[in-house]
Design a protein around this nucleic acid. Structure first.
Length: 294
DNA sequence: TGCCAGGGCGCCG
DNA sequence: CGGCGCCATGGC
């Protein structure tokens, strides 16, 4: 086993069954399990309690949190970490400062409990197209079934990777597949929405890489796609465009607001990291519910 | 069996 | 503009 000592966040780079892996230090309280289990991404599954594997950016990858407060990325070298996974995992973001910022903006007890419970979640920077498509599929749907549809869609129309798994399909590939084929993946009434989005993105009517402006104007832009409303747009902006101020409201967040907040509470006052707060609240309320139905 | 799921559209007043 | 029925599908 060859081993190279590096500096910065990367502790070491090593070979593992013929593949490169890296170990990362200084990860704060980053939690792999919370991050991949909080409902923001649909292509990762646990290999163990602290080890999640899946596909992102067209690469098979797995993230393992060690007891020593470090992170091992299996299937990545140090360069890939620096220019891709660091940003994907939000390890270039100071979440301790974000937590302090959120807590300073409201003394609502549920919000404080949610931060305490959810802290360790990082908002991923997923691929914009994958995020848009995934959250179109998410509408009026549940997480296990969303995962199933996305897996089938990737299997059918995503590029095959070395290990036999599949990348998320490009907009071009889905556009070529067409609405009927998309419907056959059990997407139901969402098929025409996915087809429209794929058509606009692959045809250049919606240039995801050229989007700029504030979150509100980006939301308006994304809502031009049939099937993208405010909630899907804001989830895409939060999880795919790094817009941490985006505050998507789904059925769970509606329940949270009714249970714990005054009707006049203005969630925009949660500031530039309102989206992170939203994810804490979402994760917290699902935990409370699961505890009660057990 | 009926209800619900990380909603949005079309239509109605 | 706000409310409401509808949309496919599967798990409970």
């Amino acid at each position: 086993m060859s081993e190279t000592i590096l500096y910065g966040n990367v502790c070491r780079e090593f070979d593992e069954y013929g593949k490169k892996s890296v170990e990362i230090g200084s990860i704060g309280n980053f939690s792999v399990a919370k991050t991949f289990d909080c409902g923001q991404c649909f292509r990762f599954e646990p290999l163990s309690k602290r080890h999640y594997s899946g596909v992102a950016y067209g690469k098979s990858i797995s993230f393992e949190e060690t007891e020593k407060h470090t992170l091992i990325i299996h299937g990545s070298n140090a360069d890939d970490y620096e220019c891709l996974w660091k940003r994907y995992l939000g390890l270039d973001v100071d979440y301790a400062a974000i937590d302090r910022d959120i807590l300073s903006r409201s003394d609502n007890p549920a919000l404080h409990e949610a931060v305490a419970y959810g802290s360790g979640i990082h908002i991923l920077r997923q691929e914009p197209w994958e995020t848009i498509c995934s959250f179109i599929i998410s509408q009026n749907n549940n997480i296990p079934r969303i995962k199933k549809i996305i897996a089938a869609m990737s299997e059918a129309y995503g590029d095959e990777l070395e290990d036999g798994s599949h990348a998320f399909p490009t907009a071009d590939a889905l556009n070529k597949a067409g609405e009927k084929s998309i419907f056959e993946l059990k997407t139901g009434f969402r098929a025409k929405y996915i087809a429209d989005a794929a058509n606009k993105v692959s045809g250049g009517a919606l240039k995801l890489s050229a989007l700029n402006g504030d979150t509100e104007s980006l939301k308006t832009k994304l809502c031009e796609v049939k099937g993208i409303g405010p909630k899907v747009a804001l989830c895409s902006l939060l999880f795919g465009f790094g817009r941490l101020d985006a505050f998507p409201i789904d059925v769970w967040i509606k329940r949270v607001t009714e249970k714990y907040f005054e009707p006049e509470f203005d969630f925009t006052k949660l500031g530039p990291y309102a989206g992170v707060a939203q994810q804490y609240l979402f994760y917290y309320e699902r935990y409370i519910q699961s505890k009660q139905t057990k």
